[in-house]
């Protein structure tokens, strides 16, 4: 494979014609990259931090001037109020959310890799129009589809059950298109040719050759899908009932009544984020361990 990739490279390497002046490499102190990234991380982490601040203070502090920027001492009290709220049923909601998001994520990644590979590398009649159709499916505004979808779920007797919030989301036009673009870019034809010469079937080629190359992109897709499912509110809120809460619909009950205790809501949201953080680290490793570090150098 090394040889094959080298065949690809020169075409690209020839491009940089601009003979930029040689710059001395910075070796001393903190690199500007780290400074910029640190800044970005601070800005990025701010919402989570602000959530923590609000979750750890009594509700009244939130609207004080100047705005509170340091955590207070009420975090455990607020967290306990969430966990002890029987209406919310947080534990069960977490299990439901894990199940719904997990199944949807596995399906989306698998189906997207399959379809993405097919659209990028397999020749079949109607490939381009069908790909165009996938693109079109992404352009449909979702908000209005809620009512017909609800009618459909009523007909299928799925209203109020977990499959109602899972089944429509086991495929994703976004996922198919993402993987298709990635396959075009990352899987050279020569690689497939080599697999064919080894006598591999198309499915074997997909599983043993293509899928490993797709790992970083698949991990990104998995992460994004999982987060999207986990945080989805509008549809689950509409179609699920009390016996089958997801984390988001359960948390919405914290805001019941005319009056919203923001500190309580933030404490709940913070709890809802924790499982995501775990998933984050899981997929994070996959993304970091991208193929090229190990693969090419051998």
């Amino acid at each position: 494979m090394t040889a094959q990739l080298e065949r690809v490279e020169p075409a690209v390497v020839r491009r940089p014609e601009a003979p930029a002046p040689a710059r001395p490499r910075r070796r001393l102190g903190v690199s500007p990259t780290v400074v910029v990234l640190a800044l970005v991380t601070v800005v990025s982490a701010f919402p989570l931090y602000f959530m923590l601040v609000m979750a750890s203070r009594p509700n009244g502090d939130i609207t004080s001037v100047p705005p509170p920027l340091t955590p207070g001492g009420e975090l455990w009290t607020n967290l306990e109020r969430v966990l002890s709220n029987a209406d919310v049923g947080f534990g069960r909601a977490v299990l439901n959310s894990l199940l719904v998001s997990g199944v949807a994520t596995v399906c989306v990644v698998l189906f997207s890799c399959l379809a993405g590979f097919a659209f990028a590398k397999l020749r079949f009649v109607g490939r381009q129009p069908l790909l165009g159709f996938v693109l079109l499916t992404m352009m449909v505004p979702v908000q209005l589809g809620l009512i017909p979808l609800y009618m459909l779920m009523t007909k299928l007797h799925l209203v109020g059950t977990l499959p109602a919030v899972t089944l429509p989301f086991v495929v994703s036009g976004f996922g198919v298109f993402l993987m298709r673009q990635f396959v075009v870019q990352a899987v050279p034809d020569e690689l497939l040719e080599a697999a064919r010469l080894d006598g591999a079937s198309i499915l074997q080629t997909f599983w043993y050759v293509v899928l490993p190359v797709l790992r970083p992109a698949a991990a990104v897709l998995a992460l994004l899908t999982f987060m999207e499912r986990w945080n989805d509110f509008l549809w689950p809120y509409l179609v699920l009932d009390l016996d089958h809460p997801t984390v988001q619909t359960a948390l919405s009950r914290l805001a019941g009544g005319y009056y919203t205790d923001q500190a309580l809501v933030m404490a709940g949201t913070l709890l809802g984020v924790l499982p995501l953080l775990a998933v984050f680290l899981l997929f994070g490793r996959q993304i970091v361990g991208g193929i090229m570090e190990g693969g090419i150098k051998s």
Binding site: L99, C107, L110, G160, T161, P163, L167, D243, H244
Partner: peptide, 19 residues
């Protein structure tokens, strides 16, 4: 693949009966 699909289907079925 089959395992994933059937577990998804089983999950769909059990969810439906839970009501």
């Amino acid at each position: 693949i089959g395992l994933i699909l059937t577990s998804a289907a089983a999950f769909a079925g059990c969810g439906g009966a839970e009501g």
